[in-house]
């Protein structure tokens, strides 16, 4: 698959070659509507079936540590303060003070105005510009941008929002698509915005912040829409497709994530390029998170279970995983007072 010439193309070349022309509404519609549909019953049944896998003993131990390393530890509240963010960063670096062997999370995810605070708090452990050596996982800073969560602002505002965060040191930008434009059929507009945001992710030194494209699947409503939006986001150059902002119910579900993983799998078959997937919101227990690991492993392959290809957007998940981890380490059940609140 990696022999596909599409692998060497720039995103815009690749999109043009696949959709057979400019990214106009009409061309995109023709392409996106040519993608096979989804039967919701079958999709949900498959997800439920994957959810019955029984992950025990050594597999579970591996899964627990893997989950921690895939978490984007998140705080996205109007009430966020520098203190809250510093506390979050501390938790990201040392999730379990009682066990120094506990891995770090992948990233902290904050609003754009908190990026600087997070970068400072991470210090040498920050992914970009950090000084910690090999063997230690450095932690990324992800910023939500583009008038998160609604995305209802002018393009100029959205791009300024992105540039601010990148300039403040964000390693990753979690943008939202314009669901209104998507639902109205203005696929070209959605596409162009993603391209513009990707461009705004470029730093002065020429490097580029990773772009996660939030589809807000709860608002897209149907699986066919999710699938088309996934293709659209990838065509436009997104590095990750992400389910939700966490501000709209339903947020991530296993069937939605499965449908997005299927797109990522098909994109890899087609182009040889690997795209990441981030379910966000609603995943609160290690039992649920393990179902996602199983779904990733059996849909795209376990090579996807690395931070640059899969993330959990979550806040309370970490503590449940830590409780499970303590249980596996000590052999007895732990309690909420034995994990830190953030």
């Amino acid at each position: 698959m990696t022999s596909s010439p599409l692998a060497t193309y720039q995103p815009d070349q690749r999109a043009a070659s696949l959709i057979g022309g400019e990214a106009t509404d009409a061309n995109l519609r023709r392409y996106l509507h040519g993608i096979p549909g989804i039967d919701a019953v079958g999709l949900e049944a498959r997800a439920a079936d994957l959810g019955t896998r029984s992950i025990k003993t050594s597999s579970k131990r591996w899964a627990i540590d893997t989950i921690i390393g895939l978490i984007d530890l998140t705080t996205l509240e109007g009430a966020d303060t520098p203190g809250k963010v510093r506390s979050l960063v501390a938790k990201a670096l040392v999730p379990d003070p009682g066990d120094p062997g506990c891995p770090r999370v992948a990233a902290v995810c904050v609003y754009g105005d908190m990026v600087g605070t997070a970068v400072t708090a991470l210090g040498s452990a920050h992914a970009a510009g950090g000084t910690e050596g090999a063997g230690v996982q450095r932690v990324h800073v992800a910023a939500v941008a583009t008038a998160f969560p609604s995305g209802r602002a002018s393009l100029a505002i959205k791009l300024a929002d992105v540039r601010d965060s990148v300039a403040a040191g964000a390693d990753e930008i979690d943008m939202v698509i314009d669901r209104g434009a998507f639902l109205a059929g203005r696929f070209g507009q959605v596409y162009d915005e993603i391209v513009a945001v990707k461009d705004a992710c470029r730093r002065a030194d020429g490097s580029v912040a990773h772009l996660k494209v939030i589809l807000e699947t709860g608002e897209l409503n149907t699986y066919d829409n999710v699938r088309r939006a996934s293709w659209l986001a990838i065509l436009a150059g997104g590095d990750f497709i992400k389910t939700s902002t966490g501000k709209v119910a339903p947020a991530a579900t296993l069937p939605v994530t499965l449908s997005m993983l299927e797109v990522v799998r098909d994109w890899h078959r087609l182009t040889g390029v690997r795209i990441g997937v981030k379910p966000a919101g609603g995943i609160r227990t290690s039992k649920d998170a393990i179902k996602y690991l199983v779904t990733v492993a059996e849909t795209v392959g376990e090579e996807w279970l690395v931070p640059h290809l899969f993330r959990f957007g979550a806040s309370s998940l970490l503590n449940d995983v830590l409780l499970q981890r303590q249980k596996m380490t000590t052999g007895h059940y732990s309690g909420p007072d034995y994990v830190t609140i953030d």
Binding site: D39, A40, V41, G42, E44, N221, T222, Y223
Partner: peptide, 14 residues
């Protein structure tokens, strides 16, 4: 002289 045929079809709005 009839055969009973049963047809299943999935139902979903999503």
């Amino acid at each position: 002289f009839t055969e009973l045929k049963t047809v299943w079809h999935t139902k979903a709005i999503l």
